[in-house]
């Protein structure tokens, strides 16, 4: 009799340990920001995602890596009303974004999960693991990280050495590189050549400072024939002809670098190719940095 009771108790314990994480996982998840959309879409099964932010599927321009995959999923422009009417049991927000919404949701007792900004690949690991646990998807998080490690290993093999002096030049002349983007560049065999002293407080670099820096590689962010705005005209400035023959200039979409996450390494392959093209244009054997 005693043996029978022990067996039943053990079976109940085993079943509970299997079922509780699944039951404890949030069933109605809302994401309110592009960078949380990227995580939620990858970690949470579709049936448990109530809404992503509109940026996840925005096509003018495409700012998310899941724009195609998330097509047809419910999206919102996050406000207290739009979020509340979805009756979420967890709202995933990037720390510091939309503070008014955060405050009202907290007042109304809606559970909010704050995701910290990852400033390095190591922090990407921490954030991904944390989200995997909180969203009830530790296996998916582990798979994402394993895939990221595979890409890192592959990129290291192909990266040009010594590193290629590079400026990532975005619309409106933004050229600040830091955090995960800088680390991905380093992994891809590139080194940031934007002169810090010439950057504005907002992180913009005048065209003539780009020319004076004469990088080996100038990656122009956005599309070559992008929409019309003053922001894009700087990428087509005729003065860039001063770099002809010295600098490899190419338009490249680096959407995976907009939000730090395991997917950021998807840009590494593109950067390696660009770095190799730049090195082919102006080889610098024996040059050290």
């Amino acid at each position: 009799m005693r043996f029978y009771q022990i067996c039943v108790a053990a079976a109940i314990c085993a079943l509970t340990s299997l079922c509780v994480p699944a039951l404890a996982a949030p069933q109605r998840v809302v994401s309110t920001f592009l960078c949380t959309d990227e995580y939620v879409f990858r970690l949470v099964p579709r049936g448990r995602i109530v809404a992503l932010s509109y940026e996840a599927v925005d096509r003018k321009p495409v700012v998310s890596t899941i724009a195609d995959a998330a097509k047809g999923m419910p999206v919102i422009r996050p406000s207290t009303e739009t979020v509340l009417q979805l009756k979420p049991d967890l709202v995933v927000m990037y720390a510091g974004t939309n503070p008014r919404l955060h405050l009202s949701l907290s007042h109304l007792g809606v559970p909010v999960l704050d995701v910290p900004w990852a400033n390095s690949v190591a922090e990407v690991r921490t954030v991904t693991k944390m989200l995997g646990d909180k969203l009830g998807a530790p296996d998916r998080a582990a798979a994402l990280l394993a895939e990221m490690d595979k890409k890192i290993a592959a990129v290291r093999v192909g990266a040009p050495r010594p590193p290629v002096r590079t400026i990532l030049y975005e619309p409106q002349g933004y050229a600040t590189v830091q955090g995960v983007t800088e680390e991905v560049m380093q992994l891809a065999g590139l080194v940031n050549a934007a002169p810090a002293a010439k950057l504005t407080r907002a992180g913009q670099l005048p065209v003539e400072a780009v020319i004076a820096a004469a990088p080996e590689l100038l990656v122009l962010g956005g599309e070559e024939r992008s929409g019309s705005a003053r922001a894009y005209t700087v990428l087509h400035h005729p003065a860039f002809k001063a770099l002809a023959g010295r600098t490899h200039m190419e338009f490249a979409k680096l959407t995976p670098l907009l939000c730090p996450g395991p997917w950021s390494l998807d840009s590494a392959e593109t950067l390696v190719k660009l770095g190799r093209a730049a090195r082919a244009l102006a080889p610098v054997p024996g040059r050290t940095y």
Binding site: V207, E208, I211, A214, H237, P238, A239, K241, A242, L243
Partner: peptide, 12 residues
Amino acid sequence: KGAAGIIAQEIR
């Protein structure tokens, strides 16, 4: 001519 020339003509 040169970077200075292009900056002078195209920007300044």
